[in-house]
């Protein structure tokens, strides 16, 4: 049984500029103890997808499709039932550690409240467990640090504290949204190692724009472009044999592989092209790509791609 199965998910919301089609017919499955990397550039709908799963979008957002968590469609749950799942079954680690912690509450209390809520412990016991969590994420002098406020923490430590909040209640699925964003190289490496160690017994959806970070942590990689998945495969397969021109373009833009950027800009999610969404930027674009929207096809053992080159 998969931990999470997303079936034909569409998440759209209205803004002043028009209807933003942030997530379009996404299918994704995460097995038990599997770590999937969701990779794509800024504004491709990764974060909206993750917030759809944990259902923390504006009430006016239109969500269609199914999100099965352990075979249960969480889109059909009431808000109260959803609260029992958040933080306990599915936890989220938000991007931007500088703003994701409450500035006026002690860090220890921010971890303890999740434990106290979901595990029915007394407040004092929850606080003790919070200190243990801080130790687990390798924060020195955890007992003292638990009584400090976020502004007394460095960027890396805030990220660790956020990870501690996410992992505090033994959740089965972790959604991590760019946890390495804005961290310097050394800290980044430490956080990646920590994420890897801490999520061994858990499933994870790891969101990032950095293919190399995803490769460090994830078993499988899903490439997202303009609101849809364009390639899905085992991490090794993506690295050895990237099929989609977008994935190839991302590889070519890496510093150690030529630093050659993909030309152009990704299309606006308000005004999506009717054909292939990568058409304008693609080196292999043909006339047919302009009007025909490609479907996801399986090329070889578990390697999926959405491109007319393989049709």
């Amino acid at each position: 049984m998969s931990v999470l199965e997303i079936i034909d998910l569409k998440t759209w919301f209205q803004t002043q500029d028009g209807l933003v089609k942030a997530v379009n017919s996404v299918n994704l499955r995460i097995e038990k103890n599997e770590r999937v990397g969701l990779v794509g550039e800024t504004g491709c709908g990764k974060t909206v997808l993750s917030f759809s799963i944990i259902r923390l979008l504006q009430p006016t957002t239109m969500i269609e499709g199914k999100i099965l968590y352990k075979s249960k469609d969480i889109l059909k749950l009431s808000e109260r039932e959803m609260q029992k799942i958040r933080g306990k079954e599915i936890a989220m680690i938000l991007q931007n550690p500088t703003t994701a912690l409450n500035p006026v509450l002690k860090v220890g209390d921010q971890i303890a409240e999740a434990i106290w809520l979901h595990q029915g412990l007394k407040k004092k016991e929850a606080k003790e467990k919070a200190v243990e969590m801080l130790e687990a994420v390798k924060i020195p002098l955890a007992e003292k640090r638990a009584n400090e406020y976020p502004h007394q923490f460095s960027g890396g430590m805030k990220e660790r504290a956020l990870i501690a909040i996410g992992l505090a209640c033994c959740t089965s699925l972790i959604i991590a949204d760019e946890p390495t964003r804005g961290l310097d190289v050394t800290t980044k490496a430490q956080i990646i190692k920590l994420m890897k160690d801490m999520t061994k017994q858990r499933s994870m959806l790891f969101i990032t724009h950095d293919l190399e970070v995803a490769a460090e942590i994830c078993d499988n990689i899903a490439m997202m472009y303009a609101g849809e998945l364009v390639e899905y495969a085992k991490t090794d397969d993506v690295f050895k044999n990237p099929l989609h021109p977008y994935t190839q373009g991302i590889f070519n833009s890496l510093p150690n592989r030529g630093l050659k950027p993909i030309k152009g800009m990704s299309p606006s999610l308000i005004d999506l092209p009717s054909g292939c969404r990568f058409y304008q930027r693609c080196d292999y674009a043909r006339e047919i790509c302009k009007n025909r929207h490609p479907e996801m096809v399986e090329m070889e053992n578990g390697h999926f791609v959405r491109c007319l080159l393989y049709d």
């Binding site: 923390l56 609260q83 799942i85 958040r86 933080g87 931007n96 994701a100 409240e113 809520l117 956020l162």
Partner: peptide, 11 residues
């Protein structure tokens, strides 16, 4: 963002 963090805890 920290309000999202709080909600994501299931509070």
């Amino acid at each position: 963002d920290y309000i999202l963090t709080a909600r994501a805890k299931g509070l």
